[in-house]
Amino acid sequence: MQRRDFVKLGSMLAATADTNGAFAGNNSLKNPLKSAQAVDFLHDGLNQSPKEYASLLMKLADEGKIKADFYSNGGVVEELENKFAQLLGKESSVFMPTGTLANHIAMRKLSGSNHRVIVQEQSHIYNDTGDSSQILSGLNLIPLGANTVEFSLKDVEAIIAKTKLGRVEAQIGAIAIETPVRRQQDRMVSYESLKKITDFAKKNGIKTHLDGARLFKQAVHTGVEPKRYGELFDTVFTSMWKCFNASSGAILAGDRSFTAKLFHERRMFGGGLPAAWVFAAVALHYADGFMNEYKLAWSSSEKLFKELGRNERVKFGTIENGSHFVNLLLINANPDKFKEGLAKRNIEIAKSGDHGFMLKVNPSINRIPVQELTGLFLEALKEA
């Protein structure tokens, strides 16, 4: 893949950047600085503008790091698949255009003729996919752990016992677990809990799938490498855009018998993109460095929160079993003016309640020395 093959695309994206703002969502930054200097507490990864994204692709092409794929097979897509199979402790992996498709295909293939699949009641699979598993693949999702992060092994045993009492024979085909859990402020299911359930599943011939969209963040907080999590499950998905800054994409990893010819199912569901290098090249670029970048960002954020916490008008709250979210509460200060003051300084945060904010830590924090970042927060607080 040569630079000239998408210089035109890059020019279009760059022009779009001037009017559409950030590449991955709303951009309310008021200061006309380059977004590479901006810090946000909204995203999992870097919120790159179209111009920045296109520039990175051009740089990678100039360096000979983009090999074209053909319908999402071969080239840099294959390099990405090999990289994440290694990172996730699996024999093989397959690129998917979205995490929704990755989760769906995993459950569909793992469950086989046993269509009952246990999921968390708070999971993305159960709440945010429009019953696609039921409609498209005839799966019967059984939600456990209402309004909580996780379900227990006792919950699983109770469902299996109930299933055996049915007059028509039916078996649990698979168990899918999401961690961190987005609908629960990205709280984490512990490694110990995951191991108990997956060990039980193996003994009882039940397949398991890990929805690890943000698994690489969890790994930093727990000290457990992603591949150790992946080794517990038959299959694992992780997002290419949440942490690895691709504009879309996912990896679904498992053993070779699982991934063999999986590209046929990908195409059957309309996911066989003619060219996926535009996603794969960027994700591969960030693959090895994300965890170290996030470790640095989290360390800097702890220093930031500690210094800000010395001010009597600011309080921080931690989240039990939390990962990258931190609650900030203002006392005797106007939250709207505080938010506006930060926006003028190219820092973006999101309100949560009347006087609170939910801050999501990501590597954009590394763009500014923590001492300078602390000073900018304090300046905005004075204006509030």
Rank of each mutant, 00 (worst) to 15 (best):
F95E: 13
G74L: 04
P97T: 02
Q122T: 15
G74V: 07
G138K: 01
P97Q: 02
N73Y: 08
L141F: 06
A68F: 01
Q86Y: 08
K162F: 04
S133F: 15
L136P: 00
E79G: 00
Q120G: 14
G145F: 12
R167N: 11
F70D: 12
L165K: 15
I142N: 03
S72F: 14
R167D: 09
D131G: 06
K164I: 05
S133D: 12
D69H: 02
Q86A: 09
S152W: 11
T100F: 12
R108K: 15
R108D: 14
G99D: 02
Y126L: 02
T163C: 11
G166T: 03
L87W: 00
N140T: 12
E78G: 07
A68I: 10
L87Y: 10
L153S: 06
N147E: 15
A85L: 06
S133V: 00
G145N: 07
V156P: 03
V149D: 04
S113Q: 12
A85C: 05
T163W: 00
A102N: 05
I118Y: 05
K90H: 04
R116H: 12
L136K: 14
D69W: 02
G75Y: 10
S123W: 07
K90V: 04
V119C: 02
G99E: 09
L141Q: 05
Q86N: 09
P97C: 02
L136Y: 10
D131R: 10
V156R: 02
Y126H: 14
S72L: 09
L110Y: 07
Q122W: 01
L80S: 07
R116E: 11
I125Q: 07
S133H: 13
R116S: 12
E157A: 08
M107I: 05
I125P: 00
T129F: 02
T148L: 05
E157D: 06
K162S: 15
I135V: 14
A161V: 05
G89I: 09
L139Q: 13
N103A: 08
I105T: 04
E121N: 14
T98N: 03
L110H: 06
K83Y: 03
G112D: 14
P143A: 08
L141A: 08
S92M: 03
I105W: 07
G166P: 00
K109P: 05
T163V: 11
H115E: 13
I105C: 05
E78S: 15
P143E: 08
I142D: 06
F95I: 09
E121D: 15
G99I: 01
D69M: 04
H115L: 13
L141S: 06
I105H: 05
R108M: 15
Y71K: 13
R108T: 15
F70G: 02
G74M: 03
I142L: 14
G138V: 05
Q120P: 05
E121M: 03
L80F: 07
Q120N: 11
F95P: 09
F70C: 03
S152D: 11
L139E: 12
N114P: 04
V76I: 15
K164F: 08
D155F: 10
V77K: 06
K109H: 09
L136I: 08
S72T: 13
I105E: 03
E91V: 04
A146E: 13
A158S: 13
F70M: 08
F95Q: 10
M96Y: 01
G130C: 02
D155Q: 11
G99P: 01
V117D: 06
